[in-house]
Computed example of a mutant assay.
Amino acid sequence: MVANERGQLLLIGGVAIAIVVFSTILFAHSLAVTDGITTTGSADTIERSADREASVERDLGRLAAETRGDDLDGFEGRYGNALQNYTRTHNRVVASSGGTYLNATLNESASLGNETSQISPGEIDDPDGGPKPKEWVVAKNVTRIAVFNFTFTKGHDSGKPFNITVTGSNGNWWALEVSLNGTGSPKNKTVTIRDSAPGSDIPVCTSPNSGPDSQDLMINLITGTCNQGSGFKTFSDVTKPPYTINVSKGQKADGTYHFAAIGTFPGTSYDSGDTEPYPVIPAVDTTYDTPSASYNRTVLVEVDDR
Rank of each mutant, 00 (worst) to 15 (best):
G159P: 12
D213W: 06
K132P: 06
L176R: 09
K189P: 14
K187M: 15
L217F: 09
Q215R: 14
T225F: 04
L221M: 15
G231N: 11
D201K: 09
N220E: 13
S210W: 02
K187Y: 10
K140D: 15
S196T: 13
G224F: 12
W136D: 07
P186Y: 07
N227H: 04
F152S: 05
I145D: 04
N220I: 10
I202L: 11
P131M: 12
N220F: 08
N188L: 13
V191W: 01
P133D: 13
I145W: 03
T206R: 08
I222S: 04
N220Y: 01
I164Q: 01
S210Y: 07
T153C: 00
S185A: 09
L221S: 03
I193H: 09
P208H: 10
W173I: 10
F152C: 04
T190D: 00
P203H: 07
P186G: 12
G168C: 06
S196W: 04
N181M: 14
C205Y: 08
T165N: 09
R194A: 11
T165E: 05
T206K: 11
T225S: 11
V142G: 05
F148H: 04
I222A: 10
N227T: 06
L176W: 08
N220M: 05
V137E: 07
G199Q: 14
N209I: 09
K187H: 10
T165H: 14
S200I: 06
N227A: 01
P161W: 04
V138R: 01
V137P: 01
E135P: 07
A197Q: 13
F162P: 01
V137N: 11
G211C: 07
S200W: 01
L176F: 08
D213F: 00
N149F: 06
G168Q: 08
F162H: 06
F150G: 05
P203E: 10
C226I: 03
K154I: 02
A197N: 14
A146R: 00
K134Q: 15
G155Y: 00
D213C: 01
S179M: 13
K233H: 08
R194E: 01
G155S: 00
W174A: 03
N188R: 00
W173T: 15
S214I: 02
K140M: 15
V191I: 15
P203M: 03
I164P: 03
S207D: 09
A146T: 08
A175G: 02
P212Y: 12
R194Q: 05
D216N: 05
W136Q: 10
S179C: 00
T143N: 12
A197Y: 12
N141T: 14
K140P: 14
K134W: 11
T151A: 01
K134C: 13
R144K: 15
P131G: 12
K189H: 12
K189E: 10
S179H: 12
P186F: 06
W136A: 09
G199I: 11
F232N: 02
G224R: 13
N163Y: 00
G168T: 06
V138C: 07
Q228K: 10
S214Q: 01
V178H: 11
N172E: 04
G155E: 02
D213L: 11
F232H: 07
C226V: 15
H156P: 03
Q228T: 08
A146P: 07
D157L: 09
T153H: 09
D201I: 02
S185F: 08
V178P: 00
